[in-house]
Design a protein around this nucleic acid. Structure first.
Length: 205
DNA sequence: CCAGACGTTGTT
DNA sequence: GTCTGG
DNA sequence: CCAGACGTTGTT
DNA sequence: GTCTGG
């Protein structure tokens, strides 16, 4: 799974890497570690507006939800079941790029996971990169306010990630730089499911 | 038939 | 909104 | 992760 | 003892 990311790059570096611009520059804060369970606003690029970097909340809320309780369970969406799940199937055409410069995973050092080793993971050939995401617009019926929310799409772990995430063996879909646009625009996403291979590097931390 | 779920797998 | 388990 | 279930379906 | 629902 993927519950924590890093986005510590300078704003200008992000804009350059994605050829897109922050609409609200003052909201961007570089951070060494972002906890998905905080559901805080996070920089993404959505298919409808590929030239802009916008702030969406991590944890997809389907349009029919009455409250945000579901968010704690929609940080990730399994690519294998995307089109079956009521929470996700309305959003499979709403593609976004989740901007990161690393993500964290914990390796279990014993059968019960009492001891864990933390790793930071990134592709060999990209310092700032995109995880495959899907998004939804949600209007809070209590307050009437609208917000964008997203999930990170996960797939079966590749060889390296299987050694690290050795209990659940899942990993986020890490897009090749040349596939960013394809993720945003292709209806059929099967080419991104396992074994979509990306050359990753993991460092202990 | 209707109430309740709808999701994934940390608490570092 | 739509599906399903009781 | 741990608490709680773990089974079938008569009243002779 | 082992599985599962919360």
């Amino acid at each position: 799974m993927c519950y924590r990311t890093r986005l510590n790059a300078q704003l200008e570096e992000i804009e350059k890497s994605f050829d897109a611009y922050f609409e609200e520059k003052e909201r961007y804060m570089p951070r060494e570690e972002i906890n998905g369970f905080s559901h805080s606003p996070y920089p993404v690029i959505v298919d409808e507006s590929p030239g802009h970097i916008q702030f969406y909340n991590w944890g997809l809320i389907p349009f029919w939800a009455k409250d945000n309780k579901i968010q704690k369970a929609t940080l990730n969406a399994k690519v294998e079941t995307l089109n079956e799940k009521p929470s996700f199937r309305n959003a499979i055409k709403n593609r976004c790029l989740v901007i990161v410069d690393g993500f964290y995973e914990w390796q279990w050092l014993d059968p019960k996971g009492k001891e864990k080793q933390k790793y930071i993971i990134k592709p060999k050939d990209q310092d700032i990169f995109a995880l495959a995401g899907i998004y939804s617009q949600w209007k809070n019926p209590e307050t009437g306010s609208e917000m964008g929310t997203y999930s990170i799409v996960t797939t079966e772990a590749n060889e390296l990630m299987g050694e690290i995430h050795n209990n659940k063996k899942r990993m986020p879909i890490v897009l090749h730089k040349q596939d960013r646009k394809k993720w945003l625009t292709s209806e059929d996403y099967s080419a991104f499911a396992f074994p979509y291979e990306t050359d990753l590097v993991a460092d202990k931390c």
